[in-house]
Amino acid sequence: MVIKMNKRDYIYGMKVFNWIKGGVLAFIGTLISRWGIGFGRFTTNVYFGMPIYFLITCSGMLVALILKIEESSDARKTLKSKKLEISSAVLYVVAFITSIVHTVYYNLEVLNVFLLAIIGIVWFLSIFYGKKWNRKILLANVLISLSFSFGIIYGAAINGSTIPLSIFIFFGAIFLLQFSKDLINESKNKEKYERAGAISLASSLGVEKTQRISFVLDLIVILLIILPFIPNFVYILSLIFYMIPVTIIVILLGIAMLLTYKLKTEKTYYRTIKILLRFGMFFLYIGLILAYF
């Protein structure tokens, strides 16, 4: 692999914005599942849950970055990779220990710790085995999507072990939407990856197929976010506040799908699709917060 990364690339590769998204999603998970628990515990869970998951997302982004940087016998680059591994491990350990303290002190159900442990195992396996996998870019993309979207499940888990169905629906929507965006990104950067010798989904399946997958994923996302409108299916506090952002999301994703369906490969379209999906994600967050406010 010959992707050359300077300091700016590293910062970009760490996807700082995703760290915040992870914390916000943990908040949303706690918000959605707060019914039946004390307001004091809810606020405590928000205070602890958001930073914990912020750190988890940081550590996940570093794992994804490790998979993306050049694997080389060059000792300097090896050292960079090791630095990232240690940083990721430290962030994860701090988050995990804080979560144990949070759980023990406030007598929480232990599910949230188990979930973080599972994440830790996934991170570990990704570092120690994923680096040798020839589809590590795909794995990195999965990790990026997973590392912050899982925050919504973690947020719900700190409230209790009975996780509402809506949490899984919204997790699915967020994960798939992010993954779809990353597939578009892969298509956009296919040549760059190929020059680097990396195997992405776009290079193995081809741009058209990758875009079709993105199209299908967007369609699934739309289906998932309109599921709550089925009466008595999942609990939404304010359907009106949910409906307005969801309408915007459907329009945005609809345009993105239309552009994807046309299989345009000009970079302008990729950029437009990415922006549409990014705004779709933004409105989904807004919708979830407002719907359960």
Partner: peptide
Amino acid sequence: YDRLSQSLILE
């Protein structure tokens, strides 16, 4: 002292 979580608008 405690109370159930509820609408944040009420908060």
